[in-house]
């Protein structure tokens, strides 16, 4: 359940922004979560709903933008779709793949008042 600590980190980011920019209510949060990141989205939603109780983000809607995995083969340099961390390159069979997309775990934007 490390999603609960990720949710606490999200709240810290939101509260820092609230103090900085003087908003008192967060209506919506857009965040990117890559399919290869260590995040279970439902667990994150649950953890977030628990930690925001009584805060500026109490009623915030969480909009999770799903980011598909992409990688670059270190051997043949092809850019490929990656669904698991043990995918082989479909062009040359190598397992040495650099992940270039799909590890994201970040808040990108908020609607506030």
């Amino acid at each position: 359940m490390h999603e609960l600590s990720l949710a606490e980190s999200m709240l810290q980011i939101i509260e820092d922004a609230a103090a900085e920019q003087g908003f008192t209510r967060v209506k919506k949060i857009w965040m990117e979560v890559g399919r290869l990141s260590c995040v279970e989205k439902d667990a994150l939603r649950f953890g977030f709903s628990v930690v925001v109780d009584g805060t500026v983000a109490q009623q915030a809607v969480l909009e999770i933008i799903d980011i598909a995995g992409r990688g670059r083969c270190e051997r043949c340099s092809s850019e490929i779709a990656v669904t698991t961390l043990y995918d082989a390159c479909p062009n040359c069979g190598s397992y040495a793949i650099d992940i270039i997309r799909g590890n994201e775990m970040r808040i990108t934007e908020m609607e506030v008042e």
């Binding site: 999200m10 970040r106 908020m110």
Partner: peptide, 17 residues
């Protein structure tokens, strides 16, 4: 302040860690 506005933030959740 009372009107909705969009705030760009672009922060990794684990940035603090």
């Amino acid at each position: 302040m009372n009107v909705s506005r969009r705030v760009k933030i672009e922060r990794a959740i684990l940035a603090q860690n």
